[in-house]
Amino acid sequence: MEDVKISYTESLISWKRPDLRVGVPVTVKYPLVPTEKPPEYRGKPHIDPNVCIGCGACVRACPADALTAEWDLENGLKSIVSNPARCIRCGRCEEACPTGAMKLTLEFELATPNKEDLVEVVEHHLTKCKKCGDYTEFTERQVEKAFQILPKEIVDANALGEKMQLCRECRMEESVKILAAQGRIIGDPLLLPPQHAKGGEK
């Protein structure tokens, strides 16, 4: 065989030949043996339905639209839908979640004949408006949580205890009435609030 002389590799070539010792195999029969999952691993996200308040912070944070909120204003339901088939495992939802309901699990073996099998849905009941009886855009747990975390002074000062029981329309009407009473809005207060579209909001 021809001797190859290469200036900058001469020193390297003079190194010893690779040893041909039969090595210990590193391949494993993967699905048959369990793999190690480090605690940092980011797997399929899971929503704890007992802790979720349905605020939708995760939905806003999700860059891949794997999390969506579905509204059913007729029946007073708001669902947080998690679709791991779209998920990119970035973990933004986990960071955004105010209650720690959203967690990335260590699970990653998600092969399934039907992607729908992976979908998780957490349904929440919406509160009813005290005034008109329509459903508001807040879930019951959201309101509960809000009262839990807000200091009492703030709740009292803004009359939130009253306002949070109302739907957006009625709330606006109330505000307009108050403002009109204070003389800050001129004109017929009942004409002012825009009609908000019901249902189908997504």
Partner: peptide, 18 residues
């Protein structure tokens, strides 16, 4: 370093790349 040995000591690899 071992990979370096294996790769660079393969004469044919060097012949193909030089």
């Amino acid at each position: 370093e071992k990979l370096y040995n294996i790769a660079v000591s393969s004469d044919i690899l060097i012949k193909r790349a030089k």
